[in-house]
Amino acid sequence: DRIFMTRTEALEFLLKAHQTAVDKIGHPSHKQTPADHAAIEALDRLLLDVRARRVDQFQINASAAQIIVTD
């Protein structure tokens, strides 16, 4: 599946995904793992790359739809 978004929409989408990941590892019942921190770092890099126009398409994980940034 493909989803087309403007750059602004894609950045909002990534910010929400980032916040969800941060909230998940901050929850008291969740045991933090290196994979959790790696996922947040990957989202940080992706946010910067989309914002800087170095990336025009991405996929958060293998089961997610491919996001295509349109400007």
Rank of each mutant, 00 (worst) to 15 (best):
A64E: 13
A38T: 08
R54G: 03
Q57P: 00
V69T: 02
Q66C: 08
Q32P: 15
D49F: 03
F4H: 06
P28D: 15
V69G: 01
P28A: 11
E12A: 12
A17K: 06
H30M: 04
T70F: 06
D44T: 14
N61H: 13
T70R: 13
L11G: 01
L14R: 00
H37L: 15
D23C: 07
A65T: 12
L47C: 03
H30K: 03
A52L: 14
E12D: 13
Q32W: 15
L48F: 12
I40F: 04
A52P: 01
V69C: 03
A35F: 08
V69A: 02
A62K: 10
F13P: 00
Q32N: 13
F58Y: 02
A62S: 09
P34Q: 12
H37Q: 14
H18R: 14
I67V: 10
G26K: 15
E9I: 03
H27S: 14
V69N: 01
R45P: 00
L46N: 00
L47M: 10
A42K: 14
A10F: 01
S29T: 10
A64V: 11
T70P: 02
K24P: 02
D44S: 15
Q66E: 11
V50F: 03
M5V: 03
H27Y: 05
R53G: 14
A38D: 10
S63Y: 14
A17I: 08
F4T: 07
H27Q: 12
L46R: 00
D56M: 11
F4D: 02
G26N: 15
M5P: 00
H30I: 06
Q57S: 13
Q57Y: 12
T33H: 04
D56K: 14
L11Y: 08
A17V: 11
R54W: 05
F58A: 00
I60F: 06
V50C: 01
R45F: 05
D49Y: 04
I25E: 02
P34F: 10
R54A: 05
K31T: 12
T6H: 04
P34T: 05
R51F: 12
Q59T: 09
Q66I: 15
Q66L: 15
H27W: 10
G26H: 15
Q59E: 05
H37Y: 13
H18C: 06
A64T: 13
A38I: 11
T20A: 15
L47G: 01
R54H: 08
A52F: 14
R7F: 09
K16G: 06
V69K: 01
V69Q: 01
I3N: 03
T8H: 11
A39K: 09
L14F: 01
S29N: 10
V69M: 07
A42Y: 15
A39R: 11
R54T: 09
H27M: 12
P34K: 09
H27E: 14
L43C: 02
A64N: 13
H27R: 10
K16T: 10
K24T: 08
I60Y: 02
A17F: 07
Q57W: 14
K24M: 12
F58N: 00
R53F: 13
L48G: 10
A17M: 11
F58P: 01
R7Y: 13
V69F: 03
H18Q: 03
R54C: 05
Q59V: 05
D23N: 08
Q19D: 06
N61C: 05
D56V: 12
V55N: 02
R54E: 06
F13R: 02
V22F: 07
D71N: 04
F4Q: 07
A35H: 08
A62M: 08
I40L: 12
T20F: 07
S29F: 06
N61V: 09
A62D: 11
A38G: 05
Q66D: 05
E12Q: 13
T33R: 05
I3K: 07
T6C: 04
V22W: 10
V22C: 06
I25N: 05
R53Q: 12
L11W: 04
Q32R: 05
R2I: 11
P28Y: 03
L43P: 00
A35S: 10
M5Q: 01
M5E: 00
F58Q: 00
G26R: 14
R7E: 02
K16W: 11
T6S: 14
L47F: 11
G26W: 15
L15W: 13
I25R: 04
E9V: 04
L46P: 00
Q57G: 06
D36E: 07
R54V: 13
F13N: 01
A42C: 10
